[in-house]
Design a protein around this nucleic acid. Sequence first.
DNA 1: CGGTAGAGTACTAGTACTCTACCGGTGCACTAGT
Length: 511
Amino acid sequence: MNTELEHVLEENFGFTHFREGQKEIILSVMKGRNVLAILPTGAGKTLCYHFPAKLLDGITIVVSPLLSLMEDQVHQMRASGEKAVVQLNGLLSFTEKEQVLSELHHRSIVFVSPEMLANDYLLKKLRHWKVGLFVVDEAHCISQWGHEFRTDYLRLSDARAALGEPPCLALTATATAEVEKDILGCLAMENAVVHRFSVNRPQIKYFIEECASEEEKQSRFREYITQVASPAIVYTGTRNDAVQLSNEIRETGISSTAYYHGGLAKEERLLIQRQFLHDELRVICATTAFGMGINKPDIRTVVHMHLPSSIEQYVQEVGRAGRDGKESAALLLYTKADRYRPLSFIEQEFLTEKELSALFRVLKGSGGTVAIKDIPAMLQLDETVWRMVMYYLEKAAAVKAGRIAAERLNEELLATLHEHFTKRRRQKQSLFLQLERLFTENSCIRSGILAYFGENQHTSPAFCCSACGFRFTDMPGFDPHPRPADESGKSNEITWQEELQHMLLPHKRGR
DNA sequence: CGGTAGAGTACTAGTACTCTACCGGTGCACTAGT
């Protein structure tokens, strides 16, 4: 069987051997087991479903969190010669979706968003096919986003059931024991095999520096930024900070810099990503919107100018550095005041008991007569918060035929929701406090991270982290003689619209 | 917490100031038709 697998690997993918972890995972999937695979970034997760998809009977559904990631994956698979791969998402018109559905092949790989799988019509259409494998890529999103931000992640087990309960493969780079339990539960993965590999990335060196004030933080950043090894990502807490820092970097003479956040136009985001991938940008200043699916092997530095929401989030973000295995730095600068922002995000995500009971009162009064889609505007309620409330109301059968069933909105349900939100709020606060503790208690960052993921045995690399006595300025890539001007010599005079036009219409390109 | 938009107040009658309340981060898919 094993030599046979290698034969298939060489025949179909051109590789002579599997990378660490791939073979075990593929073997479990081929046996029809439910599999959760926790593999570090850059370990070759795609092969773990691409390989079985070629051999298993039936189509393979791959749930992917971002449209850009989906497009990228489809593009890469097609470029590697895989023809039977398609995507189903909101970028397609109704007719295009119909066409995709009518042209499926019995071994097709279909990329979808979790939101698409919440669509009954689409599910009905997909049920005409035998589904051989149900894959959830970046499965930590279930835990990170599913409960509040993108509740359709929580509906994936319903979709899987509707598709005849095919074996499920969940893939992620980071999962604590708790997240593992959450993923297995949310996807209803009975008797799953868990393949867990170490999250340790010896090539990444951690540097945490507390600053007495915001001014000190900014000045230290200015001191460092011209000297850090690039390409580099600078994570900021707000969109505004991303813009401002990018401008400041430009003032230091590095013109190949840009900012990136969720408020930018899709085309602009796409262009900046491509420029960064093609080494046209040395430094990207970005919010958490940037990074998932960024497959750039040589990112040398990741700077955090704010405190992420959890250790998991931090590990995901710094994990984008050093995929080529070469030494890379993760630098985080913070002040004591930085804790209030992540904590306030958590606060505003959930309704308080008072707000919840006010909402119930209004819904009881008018809910039965008002269409659900009009309620958030009517109550001036945040769309995301409303969607989360709706998810839990639906679960409690308080929604019938697009209307709120007022009679279900009793004290008991109110108490249940309140209890649930309180629990989730506490969980999120606790995740943040664990991150804060990791950075402030001055013990080895790497050991702290590994212990957080349940790994207690590891050997620290000789050059480990700031708590082990190393300074950021000791990094081999750190240049003690800053370059006054941008060595790339590229001018940023071309606007992104022009650049995009050039990319899409290469024949018009004058170079 | 820190920044800022917007309201309120003061004499300069439109500009300058103070005060207060609020916001800050991640993404998908949304009309018809089956």
